[in-house]
Design a protein around this nucleic acid. Structure first.
Lengths: 217, 217
DNA sequence: GTAATTCCAGACTGATCGATCCAAAAAACA
DNA sequence: TGTTTTTTGGATCGATCAGTCTGGAATTAC
């Protein structure tokens, strides 16, 4: 079923920590798709949070055995951290890609937010694992906080670049402090995610996106 | 320690469901303060979510015995629902009270958001139990969703009233659809709560609040 | 004093938790 | 074929979970 994939060196070294022999002459390949399994885990964690998810649920969704999960991801927490990291990276990459679509910076920002608002309802309802992690752990878990910060910095840098360009082209209102606008846009995105999780339809989310962009003009 | 309180009729009837006799002639009064215990539970649930909170943690924070908790709130879920309801009511009441402070509607909105942003960092860091409930349960739990909706409707009604007034006085930009502005302000509030939970200082939150209000002018 | 009720501390239960271990089948490659 | 590794399924572990129960002290009204 799952495509056959060769192990990356990183994985081999990791596995070698628990296995003594390093003779890689003959062995069975990893059969399940690590990416697919990880995305299944992202789905379950997004729906029920870390504490609300049991390993049984994870194994069922990931369609792998107990042993495979522990061999591949270490433990439940290791799986969660990797799922959160992957989710954050993909989520931010998608938004940054949308930000580079349009020519004019403000239009690009609006386009990216509107595109986010227009996601299929089923996907939006599942919620954002990044926001879920913030709400569940706050700043108390150092590793989770580091992942959150890493994603936040990447997003803020992309927005800052665009706002700087908007300032140069005169598209950004002169009385706006970019240092205020950056966290505002981040908060707007978080607010949209919470609203989506609470059942707001795409049309409502698009309205939120347009109102947020309005404050830049 | 805790002030002595007389039981409300509601509590008596509830207790009577489990106890056969209804002779209320002689009995010991409830000793601990129900409100205080509930607020302690709100604090713990806010910090760790529903699934991440154990009954032991709750009892320690509430400073009551196991039996008292089960007698008074039924079970963990009952306690959670009551804590969430209380939190939502008090949270919305506080904001609505702030909304009635200023004379001009837009200034009132800004004042309420800035006041919310200026809460003590310790309180803001603890997070919002309402947002936590949305993230943890989404729309899957009917009773939780009902409590969330109830609070949302009250907030939206208050904002709608103020925006309508702003429209009449000409303080609201004419090209703004109030139906868009209401969920936007709600999302802005949610976004501020997530940002606060993630460690954003009051100054940053105030910047977000001002940017949000900017879009109304 | 007596009955009724609340309080606390702690024992206890059955279920579920995350995690480990084992055995056997399957697959890869020499 | 033989060796090595992955895979699965299930057994099993100790810990913790929510919730119940008991016993005894405290507090109230009669």
């Amino acid at each position: 079923m799952a495509a056959l994939r060769h192990q990356k060196p990183f994985i081999l070294f990791w596995t070698d920590q628990s296995n003594k022999s390093r003779s890689l002459v003959m062995a069975r390949h990893k059969e399940f798709d690590r990416e697919t399994a990880l995305h299944a885990a992202i789905g379950v964690f997004s729906e029920h949070g870390y504490e609300g998810t049991s390993t049984e649920e994870l194994l069922t969704a990931m369609k792998i055995s107990r042993q495979s999960m522990y061999d591949t991801f270490g433990d439940k927490r290791g799986l969660y951290l990797e799922a959160l990291k992957r989710y954050n990276v993909e989520s931010i990459d998608k938004i940054i890609a949308d930000l580079r679509r349009e020519g004019r910076p403000i239009e690009a920002l609006e386009g990216a937010l509107v595109a986010f608002a227009s996601r299929p309802a089923a996907e939006a309802r599942r919620g954002c694992l990044g926001v879920s992690a913030i709400c569940e752990f706050g700043r108390t878990d150092a590793e989770v906080a580091a992942l959150t910060d890493s994603a936040g910095h990447a997003l803020h840098a992309a927005i800052e670049s665009l706002l700087g360009e908007a300032r140069r082209t005169g598209d950004l209102a002169t009385d706006i402090d970019i240092a205020d606008a950056i966290p505002f846009l981040g908060a707007a995105l978080s607010g949209m995610k919470v609203s989506a999780r609470n059942g707001a339809p795409p049309a409502t989310l698009r309205g939120i996106a347009r109102m947020a962009i309005r404050s830049l003009r």
